[in-house]
Simulated assay, not measured.
Amino acid sequence: MIRDLWLVGIGTGSPGHVTLGGMQALRDAAVVLLPRKGEDKEELLALRRAILDASGTQAEIRVFDYPERDPDLPYAARVEAWHDEIGRRWCAALEPAPEGPVALLVWGDPSLYDSTIRIAGRLEPRPALRVIPGITAIQALTAAHAIPLNEVNGAVRITTGRRLRDEGWPEGEETLVVMLDGNCSFRALDPEGLRIWWGAYLGSPAQLLCAGPLAEVGAEIAARRAEARARHGWIMDTYLLRRDGSGA
C-alpha cells in the first residue's frame, strides 16, 4: 500500500531542470521508484540516478522493470492495459510497504502529456498525491532556441504527432507544439509558409537543435533524429511549428 505518493517533475533529465522543491521532496522521500526500460535505455536510468545524486537523498531506491505496450491491441485498449500493468509493478516493487512517502521521477512535468497522475488514480486504496512541477519540454525547447512560445496575443495548440498525422494542421491555428512524435509527422504537411524549431535531449550535453523554414530543414531534422536515436538507443524530442514563419 502506498500512503503518500510524490510525483517529481525532472524536466528533460538535467538536474538543473528540477526545482528546489523537487530536490527537497527527493531528500524527504523514504523510497524512490526508478523505472528500468531495457538494456538499450540504461542511459535513462543513469540520468535519473544522477538527479538523485545531485539531490543528496538518502531514500531507499527500488528499481522496477517498465512494461511494454501490447502492439496487437487497439491503441486505446493498449494504453489502458499498459497503465494497469505499470500500477501493478509499482505495487510489487513496494513490497514490503515503506513507512514514509514514495517518490517517482517524472520526465518533463507530471501535468503535460504524461499519465503518471492517471495511473496513480488507479491504485486502491488511493494514495495521498503530491505533484511537484518541473520544467516542461516546451519550456526547454523555447529557451534553447531563445524564442517566445506565442505570437503577440496569439494562441498555441499543443498536440501529438499521431493527431498531426491523422488530422493535419488544425484550422485557425498559427502555432503548434508537437510532442510524442516518433515519425516526424511534419513531413505530411505542406511546408509552404511553415517554420520549425526542433530540439532533442534538451538541456543535456547531447542536446540537438535545428530551426528554419520547414521546406529547407525538414529532411535534415528527420535524418539527425534517426541517427541520434540509433546512437543513443532512445530519443526525447519535440518541436514548434509556426505558420507565419516570423518566430517572434
Rank of each mutant, 00 (worst) to 15 (best):
residue 47 L to S: 08
residue 47 L to H: 06
residue 47 L to F: 07
residue 47 L to Y: 07
residue 47 L to A: 10
residue 48 R to M: 07
residue 48 R to S: 10
residue 48 R to Q: 05
residue 48 R to A: 05
residue 48 R to K: 07
residue 49 R to K: 01
residue 49 R to A: 00
residue 49 R to E: 00
residue 50 A to S: 13
residue 50 A to M: 11
residue 50 A to V: 10
residue 50 A to I: 10
residue 50 A to T: 13
residue 51 I to K: 06
residue 51 I to W: 06
residue 52 L to E: 00
residue 52 L to C: 00
residue 52 L to Y: 00
residue 52 L to K: 01
residue 53 D to S: 04
residue 53 D to W: 00
residue 53 D to Q: 04
residue 53 D to T: 04
residue 54 A to T: 01
residue 54 A to N: 01
residue 54 A to D: 02
residue 54 A to H: 02
residue 54 A to W: 00
residue 54 A to E: 01
residue 55 S to N: 12
residue 55 S to P: 09
residue 55 S to I: 13
residue 55 S to T: 11
residue 55 S to D: 12
residue 56 G to P: 02
residue 56 G to H: 01
residue 56 G to Y: 03
residue 57 T to E: 05
residue 57 T to W: 03
residue 57 T to D: 02
residue 57 T to N: 02
residue 57 T to C: 01
residue 57 T to G: 01
residue 58 Q to F: 02
residue 58 Q to E: 05
residue 58 Q to W: 03
residue 58 Q to L: 01
residue 58 Q to T: 03
residue 58 Q to G: 03
residue 59 A to T: 02
residue 59 A to H: 04
residue 59 A to P: 03
residue 59 A to W: 06
residue 59 A to E: 05
residue 59 A to M: 04
residue 59 A to V: 06
residue 59 A to S: 10
residue 60 E to P: 05
residue 60 E to N: 08
residue 60 E to L: 08
residue 60 E to R: 10
residue 60 E to I: 06
residue 61 I to S: 03
residue 61 I to L: 07
residue 61 I to K: 02
residue 61 I to T: 04
residue 61 I to H: 05
residue 62 R to I: 12
residue 62 R to H: 12
residue 62 R to E: 11
residue 62 R to M: 08
residue 62 R to V: 08
residue 62 R to N: 08
residue 63 V to E: 12
residue 63 V to F: 06
residue 63 V to P: 05
residue 64 F to M: 09
residue 64 F to R: 12
residue 65 D to M: 11
residue 65 D to H: 11
residue 65 D to I: 11
residue 65 D to L: 10
residue 65 D to R: 13
residue 65 D to G: 11
residue 66 Y to Q: 00
residue 66 Y to L: 01
residue 66 Y to I: 00
residue 67 P to N: 11
residue 67 P to F: 10
residue 67 P to C: 06
residue 67 P to Q: 08
residue 68 E to G: 15
residue 68 E to K: 15
residue 68 E to V: 14
residue 68 E to R: 15
residue 69 R to P: 13
residue 69 R to E: 13
residue 69 R to F: 09
residue 69 R to D: 11
residue 70 D to S: 04
residue 70 D to Q: 04
residue 70 D to N: 04
residue 70 D to Y: 02
residue 71 P to K: 12
residue 71 P to N: 09
residue 71 P to E: 11
residue 71 P to T: 13
residue 72 D to Y: 15
residue 72 D to R: 14
residue 72 D to S: 15
residue 72 D to E: 15
residue 72 D to N: 14
residue 72 D to W: 13
residue 72 D to Q: 15
residue 73 L to K: 15
residue 73 L to H: 14
residue 74 P to Q: 09
residue 74 P to W: 11
residue 74 P to E: 09
residue 74 P to G: 10
residue 74 P to F: 08
residue 74 P to C: 12
residue 75 Y to I: 08
residue 75 Y to S: 07
residue 75 Y to H: 09
residue 75 Y to P: 04
residue 75 Y to D: 03
residue 76 A to F: 07
residue 76 A to C: 06
residue 76 A to S: 10
residue 76 A to L: 06
residue 76 A to P: 07
residue 76 A to T: 08
residue 76 A to V: 05
residue 76 A to I: 08
residue 77 A to Y: 13
residue 77 A to M: 15
residue 78 R to C: 14
residue 78 R to Q: 15
residue 79 V to I: 14
residue 79 V to P: 10
residue 79 V to S: 12
residue 79 V to H: 13
residue 79 V to L: 13
residue 79 V to K: 14
residue 80 E to T: 05
residue 80 E to D: 10
residue 80 E to C: 02
residue 80 E to Y: 05
residue 80 E to I: 04
residue 81 A to N: 03
residue 81 A to C: 00
residue 81 A to Q: 06
residue 81 A to D: 03
